[in-house]
Design a binder for these strands. Structure first.
Length: 461
RNA sequence: UCCCCGGUAGCUCAGUCGGUAGAGCGGGUGACUGUUAAUCACUAGGUCGGCAGUUCGAGCCUGUCCCGGGGAGCCA
């Protein structure tokens, strides 16, 4: 019995082969006079392999009735194609039907809308565009580890379930085993002591606080895992469940952080251009005509580094009419970020040193006492792709900040301990993996770069 | 959550003034053919998102709900 060959191997073959075995799904079949052409795809690459089926094989009448979507096993010879358009093709000796696809198979030999394909998320990876983005997603996941491992960062598995209220990065999903139809109460409120963990539990909105503790022991570390936010966001850039990468560097400041952010994005884009060239071509051709020049631009130029105060000046002097006023102390709105990245600089921009009042408690206070060492990396079309900062490593200042925000200091005891014992300057950032995939592919809706998107009112599949 | 747009055949869409449903693709049948999302002919296929209302009559007008898209807020 010969071993199955993946189609990617056969298409890249150097010589003909007497005996090959391929398995896959039929993309299209064209019947000719004495034989039939089948385009077969097994997901190993974007391209199909052409199968020639002569009408003298046993079950020819059944084979020619197979439609788009059916699965088959083909054994035959790999030969140079007599036709134009492909180098290799398989001349079948025998074909076994694995699974037919009745005529209500939802995917057709034509372009479907992304909205429709989203309603058949269990079948959309069988389409060219979606198989391409999910191969890129896989390659890029690997590249993330490669980047960090090459630089001696350690991967830390921070918890998915966390104790309540210590993360402060967004609305959280509750985790409970309480009977929702009969919730135990104490003094009118939910009695969490009766719950599984004996206290309120949630899904993580960020692994940052946990990973900081490992940063202050293993040195350079990163997390890469799922993250959950229960905000009622209905946009093409938000989901309730997404994957985030959070590096954290010990003995590092904001400059180091910005440098890492730029190198990271450039590395990943370069990796995709080199390792996923075929799949990327599909996006450059059908999804975003400017994709390759956008990616070249990002890879070949240093990102602009712009203090928040200077960003405000540029926006004020732009003469542009914005819906939201530009004012020092207010956060930049989407339209402001887009103006900077898309119109003014036309390349990625790192805005840093934001007013402290619009940023998180753990960000390091600058000497001016008005701003914190925070940075956002803004890219054209997507907006914020990275948000990061140098962390407040000074015990007293961090404690004051927690109290100023009226957080319960007791909840942060272990976080404060890291500043009490051998504290060091450190910095890190969070990068939304799906936003990176959007950047790299030109796909404009975040729901189309994750296998099964979770958004408000949507939990199908 | 707010603003705007949309929901008609399996899919993509058209549907005029309110008068009872159309095309292309896909499916089926046949013809032709080393073809490339093949081509040509014929054919089947519809609770016009749900509910309520206006009207002699609603795909079309009104209300409401559901779903989808774009933008905003929140953020990655």
């Amino acid at each position: 019995m010969i071993e199955r060959s993946k189609i990617i191997k056969l298409l890249n073959a150097n010589n003909a082969k007497d005996s090959v075995l391929v398995k896959g799904w039929i993309r299209t079949q064209r019947e000719s006079k004495d034989f039939s052409f089948i385009e077969l795809n097994d997901g190993s690459c974007l391209a199909n392999i052409q199968i020639i089926v002569d009408n003298d094989i046993d079950n020819y009448q059944e084979i020619v009735k197979l439609t788009t979507g059916a699965a088959i096993t083909v054994s035959g010879e790999l030969l140079e194609s007599q036709g134009k358009g492909q180098k290799w093709e398989v001349h079948a000796n025998s074909i076994e039907m694995l699974g037919i696809a009745p005529d209500d198979f939802p995917l057709q030999k034509k372009r479907h809308t992304d909205e429709y394909l989203r309603t058949i998320a269990h079948l959309r990876p069988r389409s060219n565009k979606y198989s391409a983005i999910f191969r890129i997603r896989s390659k890029l996941s690997f590249a993330i580890h490669k980047f960090f491992q090459e630089r001696d960062f350690q991967w830390v598995h921070t918890p998915i379930i966390t104790g309540s209220d210590c993360e402060g990065a967004g609305e959280m999903f509750s985790v409970t085993t309480l009977n929702m139809n009969d919730i135990p109460k104490k003094d009118g409120a939910v009695d969490y002591e009766k719950d599984f963990f004996g206290k309120e539990a949630s899904l993580t909105v960020s692994g940052q606080l946990s990973v900081e503790t490992f940063c202050l022991s293993l040195g350079d570390v990163y997390t890469f895992g799922p993250t959950f936010r229960s905000e009622n966001s209905n946009t093409s850039r938000h989901m309730s469940e997404f994957w985030m990468i959070e590096p954290e560097m010990a003995f590092a400041d904001l400059q180091d952080d910005m440098k890492l952010g730029q190198e990271f994005i450039q590395y990943l884009i370069k990796y995709t251009m080199e390792e996923c060239a075929e799949d990327l071509k599909l996006f450059a051709k059908y999804v975003d005509k400017n994709l390759m020049s956008t990616l070249d631009n990002i890879v070949n130029n240093d990102f602009i580094r712009l203090p928040y105060t200077d960003a405000i000046k540029i926006l004020e002097q732009s003469g542009k009419k914005f819906e939201f006023d530009v004012d020092w102390g207010k956060d930049l709105q989407s339209e402001h970020e887009r103006f900077l990245a898309e119109e003014y600089f036309k390349q990625p921009v790192i805005v840093y040193d934001y007013p402290k009042d619009i940023k998180a408690f753990y960000m390091r206070l600058n000497d001016d006492e008005k701003t914190v060492a925070a940075m956002d990396i803004l890219v054209p079309a997507i907006g914020e792709i990275i948000g990061g900062s140098q962390r407040e490593e000074r015990y007293d200042l961090l404690k004051k900040r927690i109290n100023d925000m009226s957080f319960d200091e007791a909840n942060y005891w272990w976080y404060l301990d890291t500043r009490k014992y051998g504290t060091v300057p450190h910095a890190g950032f969070g990068l939304g993996f799906e936003r990176l995939l959007m950047l790299v592919s030109g796909i404009s809706n975040i729901r189309d770069v994750i296998p099964f998107p979770r958004t408000p009112k949507n939990l199908e599949f």
